[in-house]
């Protein structure tokens, strides 16, 4: 090892024990002094770097320190505004879609499916009991009654002539129609929906007044009316 290598080695790692270095220092007084100076500097460096740490450091260290909060905020911001716009659009669209679905259900309810066999007079009287209704004599003629499926629920369908016009009366306990009472006109078909004690009754194909007259004729005046 020559002087240059010794000095470089000392500057790289002064505290490392090395036989070759020691052997060179034995032979070279200048390098020995240099080595002593560098080691002295290293000792002072260790002391100088060991600065005092605040006693409350452990308490100040935050277990929940946010991880690169600024970076996250910068990453999130470009997504935040489009997300808000999407949320507002969804908030506006969903009620509109809900109204559309209700209207579609209403239309479907006006087109009953799966007709069953016509009911006899006795069967009709029995079928009216769950609705809390009773047919007033004399029964209109012709009158066809049958159970149908209305939006997945059973409904009693009465078909008859009233004031020279064909009319349909639907009696049901649960249907989108239940949420509506009063007259309605849907796709050219006028009708009237009323609540009974235990369900709802809808009259299709008649005006509001004619429907009310038909219901009074079939089941008597509604409860509470003079």
């Amino acid at each position: 090892m020559n002087c240059l290598a010794y000095r470089r080695a000392m500057l790289e790692a002064p505290l490392r024990e090395d036989d070759r270095r020691a052997a060179h220092a034995e032979q070279c007084a200048a390098c020995r002094r240099f080595g002593r100076t560098v080691r002295e500097l290293e000792g002072q460096l260790g002391t100088a770097l060991a600065i005092e740490v605040p006693r409350s450091l452990s308490e100040r260290l935050d277990h929940h320190a946010p991880c690169r909060q600024g970076r996250f905020a910068r990453l999130l911001l470009p997504w935040l505004i489009p997300s808000l716009i999407t949320l507002v659009a969804a908030a506006l669209y969903l009620p509109w879609q809900h109204r559309q679905e209700l209207a579609a259900a209403h239309r479907r309810s006006l087109q009953p499916t799966l007709p069953s066999q016509p009911l006899s007079d006795q069967a009709l009287r029995n079928a009216l009991v769950p609705f809390g209704l009773e047919l007033r004599p004399p029964p209109p003629s012709p009158l066809t009654a049958r159970w149908i499926e209305l939006d997945g629920a059973p409904a009693l369908q009465l078909r008859l002539q009233h004031e020279g016009r064909p009319a349909t009366v639907l009696l049901f306990s649960a249907s989108p129609l239940s949420s509506h009472t009063g007259p309605f006109v849907q796709e050219g078909v006028s009708g009237f929906v009323s609540r009974t004690e235990k369900g709802s009754v809808a009259v299709l194909g008649l005006s509001d007044a004619a429907a009310r007259r038909l219901l009074a004729r079939l089941f008597g005046p509604p409860a509470g009316s003079p």
């Binding site: 020559n2 500057l11 002064p14 070279c28 390098c31 500097l41």
Partner: peptide
């Protein structure tokens, strides 16, 4: 870095140079 520190510490005056005894 250590060379720089030695110079900054004004030890440069005290630094022994590689003299005749150096190899």
């Amino acid at each position: 870095a250590r060379q720089w520190l030695l110079k900054q510490e004004t030890r440069v005056d005290r630094l022994p140079t590689a003299g005749r005894g150096g190899r």
